[in-house]
Amino acid sequence: MSELLNNDLNSTDLARENAALISPELADTVTLTSIDKAINMLSQIVSPIANLARSNSVWPLTFGTSCCAIEMMCVGMSAFDISRFGSEVFRATPRQADLIITAGTITRKMASALITLYEQLPEPKYVIAMGACTITGGMFNDSYSVVQGVDRIIPVDVYLPGCPPRPEAILDALLKLQQKIRTENYAKRRVQAYQQRPVCYVDYDCGRPLEDLLAMAMEDTSLALDQK
């Protein structure tokens, strides 16, 4: 049935369209549908409006792990005032944020939490790697517990060096990000979406997935019931 369908479509056209839209890494995982085609056509009109709106209201996630977070707080205060660019709305939940500023050292223990947070952000989502620690590991070079660069776990849009960077530098990074957002194409952004894995809840103490534990518990109860 699927072969039939494939034959019906003009496969060469589709391939060409796909090649134009999909990045080579994702070519085998993403297939375009007719809805995507329509969106691609519409994106010529939609993209400028959407980009203008998006770039001017980048809401960051309240996420600070170390000293960089102090500078991130500072940028919200009166001397530097990130609110001029419409970004003072620090949301506490990833569902309502657009941007993670990874302010501070990301340890191996935090890595999984950061990945989860990133995956909980709704598209379109952006990351600013702030400070030396999150760019290369910084002064924790070769440390046993520090992730040597946050780009090893989540895709990064803007790198912001410094230890910690000055608040002005954060504003600069935000403006760079806004420039980047303005050049985006709505349809391409959709297609190139980061491939997400479902969030797996793990019991902290024993390290086993919660689903397995639940299944085990169910088994135990059914066994007990059988014995009765």
Binding site: V46, I49, A50, L52, A53, R54, N56, S57, G86, V89, R95, D98, P122, E123, P124, Y186
Partner: peptide, 15 residues
């Protein structure tokens, strides 16, 4: 500013 926010929220992924 808030018009931009509203348009952005319209175009956000709905989870």
């Amino acid at each position: 500013q808030t018009a931009a926010d509203a348009v952005k929220l319209l175009f956000k992924e709905d989870i």
